[in-house]
Design a protein around this nucleic acid. Sequence first.
DNA 1: TCAAAAGTGTTGCATCTACACCCATGG
DNA 2: CCATGGGTGTAGATGCAACACTTTTGA
Lengths: 227, 227
Amino acid sequence: MTSTNLDISVDCVVFGFDGQEVKVLVIEQRPQVGVSKTQLALPGDLVRVDENLDDAAQRILKELTNLNGLYLHQFKAFGDINRVSDFKDQEWLRAFRTNPEARVVTVAYYSLIPLEKYKPQASSFAGHVEWRSIDSIPDLAFDHNKIIHEGLNALKRDLDAVDLVFELLPEKFTLTQLQTVYEQILDKELDKRNFRKKIKSLGRLKALDEKEKDVDHKPAQLYSTKS
Amino acid sequence: MTSTNLDISVDCVVFGFDGQEVKVLVIEQRPQVGVSKTQLALPGDLVRVDENLDDAAQRILKELTNLNGLYLHQFKAFGDINRVSDFKDQEWLRAFRTNPEARVVTVAYYSLIPLEKYKPQASSFAGHVEWRSIDSIPDLAFDHNKIIHEGLNALKRDLDAVDLVFELLPEKFTLTQLQTVYEQILDKELDKRNFRKKIKSLGRLKALDEKEKDVDHKPAQLYSTKS
DNA sequence: TCAAAAGTGTTGCATCTACACCCATGG
DNA sequence: CCATGGGTGTAGATGCAACACTTTTGA
């Protein structure tokens, strides 16, 4: 095995919806003696030399957060020379990478999940995992803030693709929840009546024989996706 | 300098329009003694370790085809393990690469140019350059047919972005030429009157005091883009 | 009975589609 | 005068935006 001066990684922007808010999953970079303080980062790691990019993304997400079998949508490669050479990142790299000086090109993926269905758990390689609302993302390691920003742009662009949005929603959901997802991703308010007309005209929804429970107002009709 | 087992390359899908047809630029892989036959391929090469991806794409395109300063739109990374290990490709790699066994992840870009304005010229690293109509692409090296296919999809998706399509057109063009570009990229016929209405409503066109010349039918009005 | 969110229709406007004939030019 | 592509308008359908009140429930 020879050493390398260029590495490929993948980073995953996992969007989650808890019924109220769209959030992004960040992890605490694994801490270690000699590293002064931990940072938050996207789940990501180096791609193995004998591993497809898509497989690497699946593996790494599983290893770091225990999330398995998500749909991962590749959206962009980030390869600026200095994307990992910021002072704040070098200490960590020296502690954990065989070639901390290596340039790293990363291929970024986004994914959508309902929080109630998936429970990410930090592996031993990550301090902990944390959901952060998309409008209060803290400072992250490397260029991960930029990656999230571009991931959101890609998601906005792709949102009309049928069934993409349903990846975020739980099995049973209300129309208000669906609208909330759209509003938060597109970052603008939508008209309730117009929204419902449009959604229903897609013919992808099935009204269930069931209503919301334990709310202190009129309970909403629950829906699931058809077929 | 240590040897590496993983390389990054860029590949460029250059779309060109000659007034009639949308074409893709392919080059002949540089031939050499001991390599039985040449193949056609996209212009592409390894990224230097100290070079941004976007810069590498510019440099490589310049080096191989003498095309300079194009807008390059990154659209996807291709990283299947075996994307360069096909039998037809190995001979060439052994002749030209320091690490012919290395895995290569490529970042793909597309670009649009009017043929009349840019004259690509094969460098010594390329046998020759060739424009191929997008519906008769020959078998290319590596996974380059797939890359073109996905590049076209990205272009379809992006085509509505203002000014993208104008990158393909010469300074002066007719509305029929503009429509032809749309039809070929979207791969469907458009209605002439509806198309013209839509285009004119964009307000991006300026009618020139000039008409087509040397055609054996009614000469068309020439337009350029506004401002 | 109050608060809070659910649910529901209409109208005007803009946009899209389908469609057919005359015009200007060169050969 | 013929062949070729250039150029033009209308009507119907569809889709989008704006807009406010009543209902159901739990507290």
